[in-house]
Design a protein around this nucleic acid. Structure first.
Lengths: 355, 355
DNA sequence: TTGTAGGCGTTATCAC
DNA sequence: GTGATAACGCCTACAA
């Protein structure tokens, strides 16, 4: 337990000023690099500060200036390699712009997201980068309106005037299906997660936009390929490797199993691949595989996995850049910035096996 | 450019107080949940606050209380899955204790680490979790001495009185060699990174402790197995997948290539594995492989990889817990807390091939 | 329970 | 260029 611990006894500007034999104002100017100070005074102040071990207090400064030089970053789960890279990108942009990053994980829980935003706002972040989970958007709009700019990362939100940095998930997904159909597949499965791990994301229903867009792109691809009953092998309740594993195992046991499988991200692909291995089935002889996200391992498994590569780090960096522009006062109309995915063809797709 | 943007016009406690017809102090008590306020007054204040859109300012509070309810987290690179998991652990512990997390990446650069610590200190973090890179330790000691407790994560530091949460890298490494020797291997390679990507970490020299300990554990294992010239296949300048790839390729081209390879982390393993694939060699028929870190993919490649699993997330969580204890006032002597690794035997180790 | 007054460490203002 | 002094928004006495 222990008592609330006495306040850290920090050396303050008045103390430094006294030691240097100048006024508080002059010491403040020398230490804070603003206004004008004579070379002589500056030196006295600086050496006194060094001697006393002065540490500036950015909080007190932030109260006055109204800027904390800190941005808030809200993501679902930093352990997902996609988000880890995106966080890295935001961090780099922040650093380049002289900002620090306050990080929050939501685990796709709307309540946690809301409360995270509230807390970050109370901590006076100058702006917010959010990969929004499903649910209400009013806390984000409120933040923006209260003067704290918000940039959305990776996931769209409808009916809000916010900057967004995205990827065209719909198009990338339908292209995957086209590729598979081109190879001769008709029984194409898609395994993906919903809003939360437990809630399925049916097309047109709620769930994060990436999930929805990928599903709709999948369905559109199936339609374009003239494949009937496109939902036959669509599984939308598999957001974790474990769920993906279970769902895939179940599909592979079907009398007419799919001949190709499309995984909505690298962790889903991992679960699906494990199920395939355990079946045991060979890729691509028995079943073809395509996944979203060029996770580091996809190039090293045998066979290497054909993927849709997303520029995760660049997405984060760009979101950070745009946010910093807003903080600096940019008043342009909010807009959606689309970054390109790259379809990386490797060795996990082959012609369908005749079951 | 745009001007420095006018200060966000936030509603303050005095304003709420005026609207509610009470004093600043009463409003502050109602809003801050301290002292005592009558039910009636509280309601008036709360509804006035809601009406005006009051947002509390944690910075102003922090100036007074001396506590920011924020901890600083300094790691090398959040994109490394090990650190991503550790960060997640620290985040969870922080959340559980009512703290937010200010995150900094150092890229193993001592200067960036020092400056990160300074900035976090200026932002008045209540404590620091650091995975220290090599270099001086004085900034950490100074932080601790100035009243900001510091807990080291994953990496030891000599001659400092700080809490550390670690794993026994030396023992785990020598056990790996023992396992390999047991399988009959004599030409055992180790591929690992040094301090920075560019600087090799020779035993007994500088470099992060994990690297050093693993190398020394490796050498000890070789010694115990009675293998002469243990440094023959020791490569300490491979911290990235790319470098690991290059170094491994070079070793595999030797007249007498190693028959087993020990990778110091999952990213090194990735690079090494790619080199092995390109050789092309088979695992484990042509070469055996063991790696540190149970990255998600190690179980799904063929063959699955035998690994030393580290409790990355638990390590982070524990570091956070200990730090929060310190912040609460714990005065125990600093100590090293060792968490257990698990040797997970899979299918990447076989008898040596007779080259 | 409530209000007044003062202070936290900084920056902003305005004379000198 | 410099110094006194007033903010910033909040919490903490202390008195009523």
């Amino acid at each position: 337990m222990g008592r609330p611990r006495a306040r850290r006894d920090q050396v303050s500007i008045p103390q430094v000023a006294r030691a240097a034999g100048v006024s508080t104002a002059t010491a403040g100017r020398a230490l804070g690099n603003y206004g004008s100070v004579s070379q002589q005074a500056r030196e006295k102040v600086l050496s006194a500060a060094a001697e006393l071990g002065y540490q500036r207090n950015d909080l007190a400064r932030a109260i006055i200036t109204g800027r904390s030089d800190t941005i808030g970053l809200v993501v679902a789960d930093i352990e997902n390699p996609f988000f880890a890279a995106a966080v890295r990108g935001v961090s780099d942009a922040a650093r380049a712009g002289g900002f620090e990053v306050l990080l929050s994980n939501t685990d796709e829980d709307p309540d946690r997201e809301r409360s995270a935003v509230d807390i970050l706002l109370a901590k006076q972040v100058d702006g917010l980068v959010v990969a929004p989970t499903a649910g209400s958007t009013e806390h984000l709009v409120r933040a923006q309106r209260s003067g704290c700019p918000v940039v959305l990362l990776d996931r769209r939100l409808e009916n809000v005037e916010l900057d967004m940095v995205l990827v065209d998930n719909f198009r990338a997904s339908s292209a995957v299906v086209a590729h598979l159909a081109q190879a001769g597949h008709r029984r194409i499965a898609m395994v993906t997660g919903g809003t939360r791990a437990s809630e399925p994301a049916a097309p047109g229903q709620r769930g994060v936009s990436t999930g929805r867009d990928r599903v709709e792109g999948f369905l559109r691809g199936m339609l374009d390929a003239g494949i009937p009953d496109p939902q036959r092998y669509l599984r939308t309740a598999a957001g974790t490797p474990e769920q993906a594993h279970a769902v895939t195992t179940e599909m592979l046991a079907l009398p007419e199993p799919p001949t190709a499988l499309f995984a909505s991200d690298s962790r889903v692909a991992l679960g699906a691949l494990r199920a395939i291995r355990e079946a045991p089935l060979r890729v691509p002889e028995d079943i073809s595989l395509v996944a979203f996200d060029d996770a580091d391992w996809t190039g090293v498994v045998t066979p290497s996995v054909t993927v849709v590569s997303q520029p995760a780090q660049a997405l984060g960096y760009r979101a950070g850049e745009i946010l910093i522009g807003r903080i600096a006062g940019s008043e342009e109309l909010p807009r959606n910035e689309l970054m390109s995915t790259v379809f990386i063809e490797r060795n996990s797709v082959g012609p369908p096996r005749a079951w």
